[in-house]
Design a protein around this nucleic acid. Structure first.
Lengths: 200, 200, 200, 200
DNA sequence: AATGAATGAGGATTCATTCAT
DNA sequence: AATGAATGAATCCTCATTCAT
């Protein structure tokens, strides 16, 4: 019976989470390739061999980490975009929520910036980011229809811009190049994207 | 005699460049840690031992690659920012030039996105990006003094935003998520940052 | 209470046999060291931990397999050798029976050809083969006394020859290098050894 | 440049042979799977990493060992079979030479009896044995045409018998179950196969 | 009896770096 | 300058065996 088709007990799920958490912390702190499986296990307080009871290998642990984080972010964004009807306002809210979420879970989001060599991981990352870009593009389109954003701007490009802005500003925050409060940063980023997409 | 103080002949410089080029191609294609020194030497057509005649180690080769690329970009930006006197216009020009430059030398700029585990590499990258951010901040400051940008926006944040926008739009281009011409993209990005910094 | 002195219920004996059968099949198919205990348990449909309720370890399972097979072969040979009084004829019969038996239980006899690294396994194998060689040597001796086999041939060498012939012809059969019927093969081998021991 | 396409210098060939010899000794002494690559390197007096300069992995070292030994045996047999014109005599000579050769190089031939799990190795072994069987079959055929061997015996089966006899008797010798001189053994085996193939 | 999680020693392999020539 | 052989630390992963339940 291979790892993936293993049916976990409640205790098993907990153990697995322990390992995931330990890995997330170490990856974001010292990087992916610098973190040894032995380190992860030690941090989680389990034997080295147990790692392979729960995960196929290092890479698949990483993929799982990224996937779970993406889901959480998606939920937060979804909630923010659902409220209100003004599309511009919803983009603003989603931006603010995203900045908060990504700075709060900095350990997890730092993971997105480690090594992007492996095909599988590249795939997961791309998939994960395009979801948000899609949502944003839809909202922008809506806003353009309502006359709130100039029609001559490509909605897909604008959406990528929004996505990139959030990820870049939180990146700067993560790497210690910003010192104000997260609250202020979120508002600033929301303002930045609002202006950038040409909203009036 | 250590590597750094070695006096290279013309032929030596060529040889070294061969290695640098091979490394750049491989790094950007398969990533930093996935590329072995043996691969680089094979691609450059030299023996493995020769690598250490020209470079201290793998890390310092990387640093050299990044540094040389930064200098080239700097020159291009410098020329663009020097022309004209309107600060906003100079930001626009620098943005356009940067987008062009970074997409033209995509192999090199992909290097900036490899994993950032090693302290030295992190340092080189940070140093390299802050130069541009600095220039931008100065221009923005100037524009604010001239009343072309609202005073209540933090110039440093805006500068980071400009830097981030250029780097993420070219990233999307590099990873194949944009299909229009580079010309169009550069103009779009210039527009994006102009609006985002609140220029009127 | 150690494994060996465990008193098994009927159901227990069945379970144990399930494991033995699964192991025999896997060993002969993929070899001893390539077969993991986990594989055996999965094939037998029991949990990994249960293995150690019935067996001391992997090696002793193997020894048990070999021993039980040897006994069965011994019984078959014994019956064949008991009938009739002509020693040469008894060797022929035993040979024919052995070839039949070993080809019928090919899965089991393939086990004898796994690697022989472990001391214990070597011991079991040697013990097992020398019994047959002994029987054969006695018959040959008898035949020599009766003038049916030249006295100048060493009976022990001849006996080993008989043993070897049976085992290698069935080996060739097992590995697919012979295609005729088992019936024919058995007769051929009997003829081969009869001639080889110099019977007239 | 992968291992196989590496062009070795004279010194390199020597080094490689050192490793091969050390491996042969260890394999035959303690078995294939029990011998670690670290052991081989230690015995050969080289660093662990160097192993992979000369060999792809453990398995391919083994295959190379088997191949080289087969060639040597083939040469010896070839010489023996070439002399004289009587086919039966040539089989006798080849048998005697083989027994001598295989007992002299016992370390190498013991290798044929270790682990046969891996596909590649099975292939090498089969290939290696079928060459000899082929030669023998041809000689037997010739002898049958000349009326020296009964026509009703299948020459291919007889040839396998010859092959098996040589390998079994030398196996018994190797494992210490025979104590006479090699000279005597060789003569005995030659007699055994001569009688067994029905020569008169 | 039975389960499946947990342990940890062990071994193969990689690869940056050094060295003799 | 150049070569390619040599080194050995580092690390992933396997798997027999034990343990708690």
């Amino acid at each position: 019976m291979s790892v993936s088709e293993r049916q976990l007990t409640d205790q098993g799920k907990e153990r697995k989470q322990q390992i995931l958490d330990a890995a997330a912390a170490l990856f974001s702190e010292r990087g992916y390739s610098t973190t040894r499986i032995a380190d992860i296990c030690e941090a989680a307080g389990v034997a080295k061999g147990l790692f392979y009871w729960y995960f196929q290998n290092k890479e698949s642990l990483y993929a799982e980490l990224v996937r779970s984080m993406r889901q959480a972010l998606r939920r937060a964004q979804g909630a923010a975009m659902a409220e209100g009807t003004d599309p511009i306002d919803r983009i603003r809210r989603a931006t603010i929520v995203s900045v908060h979420f990504m700075t709060e879970h900095r350990a997890y989001f730092a993971l997105l910036e480690v090594e992007r060599d492996d095909e599988i991981i590249v795939e997961v990352l791309r998939e994960s980011s395009s979801l948000y870009a899609n949502d944003a593009a839809n909202l922008i389109h809506e806003a353009q229809a309502a006359g709130a954003i100039p029609e001559d701007l490509d909605p897909d490009l604008l959406a990528l811009g929004v996505l990139g802005a959030v990820s870049h500003f939180t990146h700067f925050h993560r790497t210690g190049r910003l010192d104000g409060s997260v609250e202020d940063l979120a508002v600033f980023v929301a303002g930045w994207v609002t202006r950038a997409i040409g909203a009036h």
